[in-house]
Design a protein around this nucleic acid. Structure first.
Lengths: 354, 354
DNA sequence: TTGTAGGCGTTATCAC
DNA sequence: GTGATAACGCCTACAA
């Protein structure tokens, strides 16, 4: 009942909101023009130098009518006609992972800037959903082995895909790839160059066969040494476990001088733990992470981290370009990792840091 | 061929592929029937008792043709015709919050069961995006004051909204509401009944004017006492801070016997901290949280928590029912909070626990 | 049991 | 400059 009409004048065309969505036809009728003209005006093609110019007065009449009716174009109908949904879709299998959220934020911001709606799908079986929901560009953050051929199938049907995965090759879709292990190795080497007593903190920290911990052990082995038991903290995935593990490492009288954490979020917990022990991070102890996340960059002191060069921005740009047809699909994008040295390992970031 | 993006290398040639989506007409042609028949078959209306029955042989021919072409119905076209998008949208302003993810999971599961695609929008200005993107049901997890009237406006235009917020009343849209403060108070009372020395852990734990901590102080005041300084740990929002705060509380020689944490996630950190101190949670110390999250329920020992009665399931069901037009909008759903007593406060969950 | 045709709300291609 | 009108792909009376 809170239907307040633009208080009671006369013209009989009371603006009482109908339960139905106003269509372009209603706008045309109210403005006394054709639907074509309305379309021109509302899509901005009437005023700009491009397309048929619409008289200023008509333009205004159309605008008023649309406003008065509260007209909003029907996306579905537009999509039928144009094949574009003005939408980018992010399929994120691990939404709990902070990195996923950073991707979401980066792409969302870029998308909105270009009038695209960013949508997320927290679903690890994206193939079913992607069959029906067609977005102008789709980001897929991980591919399980049995899903591999679904990618080319979807691409062949016209879907514009950007796949973040190291196990697939472009085939009608884009692949974004980023070799983390190489970067990890480089980071450990870097730490070993500066401090001879480096510890490893992370899930599976004792594993020498695979994962980010293996990079640690391999680097040690290459220098003819191996990690002592009290230099390895094998923790669970939770922040509290990371905090506790760091306390165990750094609480020893004979504590390590540097800590290699297998992710930025673990490293952040470690920094907090070190600080609670009264240690000054970057001077008393060096701590470095992996992933080069925003959270690490914003930490005090800023966190040294191995990470790719601006994947986030590149992915965002890529998605927008692809969605707006400014770039063809089918490419491979390789983002080399480097060591981002910051104050948590005793060196302030260079001013030129990007 | 190698162009460079923001940073990183791009290689490969774009695969020029026709990428034409098969339409219902192509299927009809290939099967030698009319488009109507294809539609009947593929929407399941041909075989069931309802609608025009299609001969078994024809049905099969259509199925084969669709399969061969890899036909998938065009959602946009279907939406134009039917007004339904087969989609539910979740607008989550705080995707980092674990509770949001639980909502996402609950609704997603229910939606998929009913052949609806769950999509998430990590955007705090949903009004812009909702104007265009019409889903069959939309969940909104928070409403800022200046957004309030946008709700009725959207509802008036036909959007089916479910709003989770305590500050709005239904007006063409559903409101789901859940009074957490009452539940918090009840939980503190419950702790005070069992243990006379209760501490408070959480952000703003010392505030007596508002928030979940206020419930703690109010309950104490009602019993004629007040909290000592070493019974209040005012922490930051991070898990590490919660862990450290719990250590500070429970590490004291004269430690409190019970801890009221203002969220389940803080309580979980506290449980870990207690265990690291060698305390048996539920016997040596009681710990309770707020929110009644899945994570708390799964903890060892299971976490006592104040929380609403199955909001998650109710929201999920609500969304599906509304999306499938089995339920009208405009209702208020109030979910009273209760204390879910579990082993973390010394009492095993009753077998009848829901 | 199947086909024909009209229409959903848009945009694009013409004429005028 | 503006207006008919034909698509777009799909669904669904209604006719056959």
């Amino acid at each position: 009942m809170s239907e307040s009409t633009a208080s009671g004048t006369t013209t009989g065309e009371a603006t009482a909101r109908p339960a139905v969505r106003p269509t372009i036809r209603m706008v045309a009728e109210l403005a006394g023009v054709s639907t074509a003209t309305v379309s021109y005006v509302l899509s901005g093609r009437g005023t700009g130098g491009k397309g048929p110019g619409v008289k200023e007065e008509t333009t205004q009449r159309v605008r008023d009518a649309a406003e008065q009716l509260g007209y909003r174009p029907n996306q579905a109908a537009r999509a039928v006609r144009t094949g574009k949904t003005q939408t980018v879709l992010l399929s994120m299998t691990m939404l709990r992972d902070p990195w996923s959220l950073e991707v979401v934020e980066a792409v969302s911001a870029a998308a909105r800037r270009h009038d695209l709606t960013p949508l997320i799908m927290a679903d690890d079986d994206w193939n079913v959903a992607l069959e029906r929901n067609q977005a102008d560009a789709v980001f897929i953050d991980a591919v399980r082995p049995e899903q591999r051929d679904a990618l080319s199938r979807l691409a062949g049907r016209g879907a514009k895909l950007v796949v973040f995965d190291s196990t697939v090759e472009p085939d009608g879709f884009d692949v974004v790839r980023s070799d983390d292990l190489g970067g990890c190795r480089e980071l450990v080497e870097h730490l070993l160059d500066g401090w001879d007593d480096v510890a490893c903190l992370g899930p599976g920290a004792s594993r020498t066969d695979r994962g980010r911990a293996a990079a640690f052990h391999a680097a040690l082995a290459a220098r003819g040494t191996a990690a002592a038991a009290n230099r390895v903290a094998d923790i669970e995935g939770t922040p509290e476990s990371a905090y506790a593990g760091a306390l165990a490492l750094l609480g020893q009288a004979d504590r390590p001088r540097a800590v290699y954490a297998t992710s930025d979020y673990i490293a952040i917990s470690a920094v907090h733990a070190a600080q609670s022990l009264g240690l000054e991070v970057g001077r008393d102890v060096a701590i470095a992470g992996v992933g080069n996340t925003l959270a690490g960059e914003r930490l005090q002191p800023p966190l040294t981290s191995a990470g790719p060069t601006n994947v986030l921005g590149a992915i965002a740009e890529l998605m927008v370009d692809i969605a707006t047809d400014q770039r063809a699909v089918g490419h491979l994008h390789d983002f080399p990792w480097k060591v981002w040295e910051r104050a948590s390992t005793g060196h302030a970031a260079p001013l030129s840091a990007q």
